[in-house]
Design a protein around this nucleic acid. Sequence first.
DNA 1: GTTTCGATATCGGTT
DNA 2: AACCGATGTCGAAAC
Lengths: 252, 252
Amino acid sequence: MVRAILTDPGAQELAEFLNEHLRSPGALVQVVGEFEVFYRGRAASVAEAGDFLLLVKPDGSVQVHSHRSVKPVNWQPQTDDLRVVFEDGIAVLLAERFTPAELLRVGFLAPALAVVLELREGGDFLLFGSEAEMQRALAANPEVIEPGLCLVHMELPTDVGGIDLLARDAHGRLVVVELKRGRASHEAVHQLNRYVESVRRVAGEAVRGVLAAPSVTAPALNRLGELGLEFREVSALPSSEAVEPAQPGLFA
Amino acid sequence: MVRAILTDPGAQELAEFLNEHLRSPGALVQVVGEFEVFYRGRAASVAEAGDFLLLVKPDGSVQVHSHRSVKPVNWQPQTDDLRVVFEDGIAVLLAERFTPAELLRVGFLAPALAVVLELREGGDFLLFGSEAEMQRALAANPEVIEPGLCLVHMELPTDVGGIDLLARDAHGRLVVVELKRGRASHEAVHQLNRYVESVRRVAGEAVRGVLAAPSVTAPALNRLGELGLEFREVSALPSSEAVEPAQPGLFA
DNA sequence: GTTTCGATATCGGTT
DNA sequence: AACCGATGTCGAAAC
């Protein structure tokens, strides 16, 4: 699991260490110390000298973390080219991506620690309560949205995007359903409205629009009313039983 | 910078180590090993036994990384409560947030390494090419969008959101400008269309709509045409000079 | 506290 | 490769 640890390396020593381990398959390389970070690509940024933690994963992704926040200060998803150069007496990591063209440059001003890890691929990762899961559940039980509702289509493409659920109500009217796994905002309302207008144009009949979500913001609810659309409360996690572990108290 | 390193700790030993250092101010705590991770809150997830890297920053944010991807497998922004318990012979980290109610549970099945770091707050972080910067630049020089354009408002609130720039063209017609720092998609077109329709309702006069971005997707450009709106190519990073470091070749 | 919006969004699926 | 939409989006600013 821990392949190598190097404390208080010199610049040359760090460069050699990184050159060796960044090439080896499966290696997650970490460096801690005082860095200077430059980025240039979709935007450009400069992080002046400060203490950072660098992670380079085996897939070539790079992230530079500061003392706060989940989000790294600088990063690079899966790089196409990774190399370490020795410049003006300091080791420098160059992480490059081709599409989009981006370059991240980390200058190791004062490295304090370098660690090489091997994280074997683990077991499954299961997520409950995604919009996709909600969609499957409601497609199987449309009456949860409204009694008498009958599914016509799922992910029906229109000229303005895919409709989550298309159904007919008890009176045979077409119903466009837009799902949100979390609190629905006015964006969801506009999305629904576009779908409803598109279906009206094509079908040439009365079409209802329903926003199905666990909750909705006040402005979104107002806009829904103005546009003649409806809201239905639907929870994303159908029953807590489903995700509760075998023995109780694991989440206590 | 490096406060403590513990290799191959026992469960009890790790629990004590974490209890000591998670409380100390400014400590960034890291654990590497085989974990099991549960999450329950806005959604729910289970990561079966596997190798992970845990980071707990001084601000209480928690992230669990696997061997791939910039994004952690599980995380928790700034937690309200962090504690380590000893359960069934293993050390367990409980990271809780109150709003929204969320709990992350990391079971250290086989810890291999624990490190405590102190990352002092660093120098400034400068970002170039944000939409806000683009907005300021175009507000100061509206003729870059179109000769004769004259700024009327910036971030003008409407009933459907804030208009980036409102201007008048050489003929005195109102022009709604929507900015995007990256390639504009059909979402940006619909956003612009909502603003234009809102201004038309209020102003009761002819209103043009301009999408200003470095590029636009083909479907978005089609939709723009259908809606009678316009596209103007504007780059987010005005000149490469501005972000180029003093001595050339730093980004080479 | 709520809502909104930008982001170097990232990431995955589909065309 | 481009496009599209979800995300436990995160994070900051405006209200």
